[in-house]
Design a protein around this nucleic acid. Sequence first.
DNA 1: TACCGC
DNA 2: AGCGGT
Length: 216
Amino acid sequence: MKVSIVLPPNSKEALETRERILEIATEQFARFGVRTITMEDIARQAGISKKTIYQEYADKRDLVKAVFARILEEDQKRLTFILETEDGVIEHLVQTSKMMRERLSSINPMVIMEVQKYFPEAWRMFEEFKEHTIQTDLVNVLEKGKELGYFRPEIDSLILAKVRMNQITSAFDPSNFANPEFNFVEEQLVLMDHFLHGIFTEKGRQAYHSQKEILN
DNA sequence: TACCGC
DNA sequence: AGCGGT
């Protein structure tokens, strides 16, 4: 039996078709995987025809890329915004770990493997994001944190930014996912915590922990 | 919605 | 076989 999702008859068309497709795709891909969800599934849930989807997106790869691009963009905005506020270093760190937990635990880990394997262009976008945005962001936080006395003054921001990036990358290694014991989200959070405690001053450590109490 | 081809 | 694409 087919289950059809009935939407409010015309929820004001507040969302453009393109946007609706993107939202449904984002949610469905994250929950069930980019391979198990078909273009037809998305069309059905959106209450439109496949043809309409293909008017907005050239093909499935294009749609997967758009989904990823949007997630990355949103996260980036949230993070740079925090760092632009005065000080903001500690808030940025705690917010980052919160975002990672929320984001990663809402994504079926299988999706990560599928995208690496079957949607290399979308994966490439993620890698570029890592290499440019995350690295730049890290160097900025590290520098600012040093100036404000949260991190030990002798640390090399660029080297440590790269170390941190390698930690992130290593947790994404497909061989990890083969192990059922492996908790992807937990590993990322533990690695981040460990990294931070290696560079905190006492002031930084305390600020981090009290900020965590407040925000989490 | 039917259909093709991978 | 079933999905992407027409």
